[in-house]
Design a protein around this nucleic acid. Structure first.
Lengths: 108, 108
DNA sequence: CGGCATAATGCCTGTATCGGCATAGGGGAG
DNA sequence: CTCCCCTATGCCGATACAGGCATTATGCCG
């Protein structure tokens, strides 16, 4: 890390804030699982069209997803697999944290 | 990832939301750099005492930092080094993303 | 015990943002 | 050109939360 600049802090927290919204994190997961045209996303998530469009717009602006136009449809794909890796690490952190709390209760 | 449960989505986004606040991300960085008693943190960040206390409280509740009481002082330490790894990945993602956009401009 | 330092909490306000409804833009098919 | 479908955006109400001020809680020392 080596002391991040304020600009980097701002950028990184902006990135994390995107994933900090359950709807958007959900979208990232759905998109990663293929079949990511908007109709399918609406169907699988139950989000309204406008909601979906906004969130996808934000994800795209940050470069987390790419959009590919097919006529008047839009196909979304995840841009960078590292996002998935980050989620994986976050998951492991959570599990470890809970496991440690559990253990500390058992010992005490 | 393999299709995360709604509960996991909620937990993960909660974690990301913590880092999504510049003040808290800043704190995590400062704490990682050692010397993390509250007075020092106030000094280095310029945050007010109440603000600091609240943010540290949230980080602690999520298990991102640990607090060790020394008399009436509090020493904060980062709990899990994986958080740093996550920041590192996020940084690399950002750089890659910007580099790609730059390249695409040069080619076009 | 009474003052003093440090940390946590109640209360409050301002601001950001989620997310719905309605509307506008833009590309096919007739 | 016109209708229709899909997506994006303006507007707005509700809600969440940052962050300040004042107060309280907690542990130190005289």
């Amino acid at each position: 890390m080596h002391q991040l600049s304020p600009e980097m802090i701002e950028e990184l927290s902006g990135f994390f804030r995107l994933l900090g919204e359950p709807a958007r994190l959900r979208l990232m997961c759905e998109i990663r699982n293929g079949n990511s045209d908007v109709a399918t996303l609406m169907d699988r998530t139950g989000f309204s069209q406008s909601h979906l469009s906004r969130q996808l717009g934000q994800l795209q602006k940050a470069g987390l997803v790419q959009v590919e136009r097919d006529g008047n449809r839009s196909l979304y794909t995840a841009t960078d697999p590292v996002v998935e890796a980050i989620c994986q690490l976050a998951q492991e952190r959570l599990m470890n944290h809970l496991r440690q709390r559990l253990d500390s209760l058992n010992v005490a």
